[in-house]
Design a protein around this nucleic acid. Structure first.
Lengths: 202, 202
DNA sequence: CTGCATCCGGGCCGATACTG
DNA sequence: CAGTATCGGCCCGGATGCAG
């Protein structure tokens, strides 16, 4: 991208991550190291040449590093993008109220709202395992030692299983939807939903 | 901009503020309401049609509102962009270490690093008035009641006057430069610099 | 099959000219 | 002062090719 040519931290930051698709690539890598094909899978709609070019730019700028096997991961500095990414997601949370419509969805994207909703460590949070079954592959929300995070794949013995469309699931996680209104959106819950509310400190 | 078409808060947020120049327009409006010509002045390099189009988009999305006299200002939701903007500026702070070079600078841009460095309210901070004289118009850094912010224009009776190039001034504000190394960059200080350090809690 | 590079049509960006 | 109109060029998006 052409530089803004401004001696300003925001402008210089945008010179690095302001390109189209760039921050979404960072979102994918914040979940963990990813192969090229996994990145494509998590970024529906991106052109393959764009993904390659962005990764090259991010590597040059010191945000992304690739190891010998061709796996991409964030550098230490790149990891620190979690703060602005979470802040932007939090700001944009009201936009999630309008339904999914034709928008695509990948269940690994739940890592972002989960990180925003259950951020930090709270020792009072109970241990809990939730399996999420939505459009594509199942993912697991784990609560251990006060921290909450998302892992790809189903759970071995979940305390709670939530099945349904993405907007209903996100509404439930945020606490914006009641169990009955979520059910109207097609969400099925296996287990006691109050255990989820307790993760938010409810 | 074309929507990413993803049911993800980050993607939907970028659909609103991900366009080129958009977040820099928000930076200008975070300082306070601005006229069209003032925005142009604070965004060197932007094309006038782009500025008009971005303002229209931001207004449609409910980020910006314009009053009867044609003054633009952020809505309540738009104001909340201060969090992601500050987070991005904080992340990009290391990029400010490379010198200004040919980059343009406006002294009102100091409002952003000042907000990042002296964020929040700290009652132990002393009352202080600093006048900054850099490339263009003078600005004033005010510390009152534990809060620190930037006002356009010179101060009436400053406790401290700092004159010099932008990179030297920003380095001094962050505490990354000593008084002597700042002086080597052409920074002149009128008054006792230790009073500035005390604002940071030093 | 993975991990890109190349090519091309269309849309967005950048600069200038112009208008109420 | 506050934009609109216009136009060349670059970037984006989608399809395809191809080397390891």
């Amino acid at each position: 991208m052409k530089s803004y040519g401004q001696y300003c931290a925001l402008a210089r930051g945008l010179d690095v991550i302001g390109d189209r698709w760039t921050l979404l690539i960072v979102r994918e890598l914040l979940v963990g190291p990813r192969r090229y094909s996994e990145l494509r899978e998590g970024l529906p709609g991106i052109a393959t040449n764009l993904l390659a070019e962005r990764l090259r730019d991010l590597e040059e700028h010191g945000v992304v590093a690739r190891d010998a096997e061709g796996t991409y991961q964030l550098t230490e500095w790149g990891q620190e993008l979690s703060a602005p990414v979470h802040a932007l997601a939090r700001w944009a949370a009201p936009l999630m109220a309008t339904p999914q419509g034709d928008d695509t969805f990948r269940s690994t994207w739940l890592a972002l709202p989960v990180a925003v909703i259950f951020n930090g460590i709270d020792k009072r949070r109970p241990r809990l395992t939730i399996e999420i079954r939505s459009n594509d592959a199942a993912v697991t929300i784990e609560s251990r030692n006060g921290a909450v995070w998302v892992e790809p794949g189903p759970a071995t013995s979940p305390d709670l299983v939530i099945t349904g469309p993405p907007d209903g699931i996100v509404g439930l996680l945020m606490g914006a939807l009641s169990e009955t209104s979520a059910a109207e959106q097609g969400v099925t819950i296996g287990g006691d939903l109050h255990r989820l509310a307790r993760l938010r400190g409810g």
